[in-house]
Each structure stands twice: as C-alpha cells, then as structure tokens.
C-alpha cells in the first residue's frame, strides 16, 4: 500500500518534470526540470531494489551531467533567446504521439506473465542483499571485455571533447 503511494508520487514527479523539460520557455528552467526528472528516476530505481544504480544515477546524472548542462547554457549567450520550437514541430509531435501510442498499446495488450516459476527465493534474496558485490564480480569476470571497451570509449570521448574545445582557441 505505502510503496504504491510512493510509486505514484515518484512516477508523477518524473513524468511531469519530463513534460516540463520540453514545454518550458526558458532553457535554464528546462535544465532544472531535467535534474528533477533524474531525481524521480532515482526514486524509481530505489523502488526496484537497485540501490547501486540509484547511487550512480544520483552522482553521475544529478551531480555531474545536470551541472555540465547548466554550465554549457551559461557559456552560450543564447539563453535570453529562449527555447523555441523548430519548424518541424507538428511533424515531430505527430511522430512522437504515434510512437507513444504504439508503445503503450504493445505494453498494455501483451500478457506479461510474471507469476511463472521464477528463480528460487533464496537466490533472489541473496542477489538483492549483496547486489553491489555481484555487480562488481560480474563486471570483472563475465563482462570484462565490455568493461574495458567502455573505458576506452570514455577515454576517446574525453580526448575528443578536449580537442574539439581547443580547436576554436587557435
């Protein structure tokens, strides 16, 4: 009962903030609503027993990405020009509503049978009790190749960002 109430509150915060991101006139306010959306997603992760992801979301998205976006908005002086729509707004809205109706229709009409015989309860309890241990163990044993590749992706992104920003200074 109480988790349901918390779920509805968190979900409505997330969705309303996400809508405000795209209808807000001021891009600075849109960035603040984006941070509020990320906080709502943190709540949803906690409701899904994903504490590690909730912490990562709080540190990376709310703490880093929102601040970087705010810095980028303040460095570019087009803030006072606002956050206008492009000339494709009706086509874009139409496409988005079609995708929304397809997604909602597929989710509602499919029979999500989650009551089948699942993993043993003791396995589930052990997994969710020591979730950080199992995530770390899997990252360096089974998924070690994607882990190393993602570190190279981050390195390439940092080098690319530095070279792109430096290029204009010369």
């Amino acid at each position: 009962m109480i988790p349901d109430i918390i779920f509805y509150i968190t979900a409505s915060i997330t969705i309303i903030s996400a809508i405000m991101v795209i209808i807000s006139r001021d891009i600075f306010r849109a960035a603040l609503f984006l941070a509020s959306t990320f906080l709502g997603v943190v709540g949803l992760f906690i409701l899904l027993f994903a504490e590690f992801l909730a912490a990562v979301q709080l540190i990376i998205y709310v703490g880093a990405i929102s601040v970087v976006i705010l810095f980028a908005i303040m460095f570019t002086k087009d803030v006072e020009l606002g956050n206008p729509f492009s000339k494709f707004k009706f086509i874009g809205l139409f496409t988005g509503l079609i995708v929304l109706s397809i997604l909602i229709g597929a989710i509602v009409s499919f029979d999500w049978n989650t009551n089948f015989e699942s993993a043993k309860p003791e396995v589930l309890i052990e997994a969710y009790k020591n979730s950080i241990y199992f995530i770390g163990k899997t990252l360096v044993s089974t998924l070690v190749v994607p882990f190393i590749v993602s570190s190279f992706v981050l390195l390439a992104a940092v080098l690319g960002a530095i070279s792109l920003v430096k290029e204009g200074n010369e």
Binding site: N83, L93, V108
Partner: peptide
C-alpha cells in the same frame, strides 16, 4: 508491477523523442 514501470518508461521515451524532434536549441 512490471506494466506500470514499462508504461512510465514508454511515456518518458516518447517525451524525449518529441523533444528531440521539435526543439531547435541544441542543448535542449
């Protein structure tokens, strides 16, 4: 349940798609 989380995810994805298509500011 699973459906409610998937519906939230789908609605948020569509909002993001609409935003990508209709905004003209690159940061938005």
């Amino acid at each position: 349940n699973l459906e409610s989380f998937l519906i939230i995810s789908g609605v948020m994805f569509s909002i993001g798609l609409i935003g990508v298509l209709i905004k003209s500011n690159i940061i938005a």
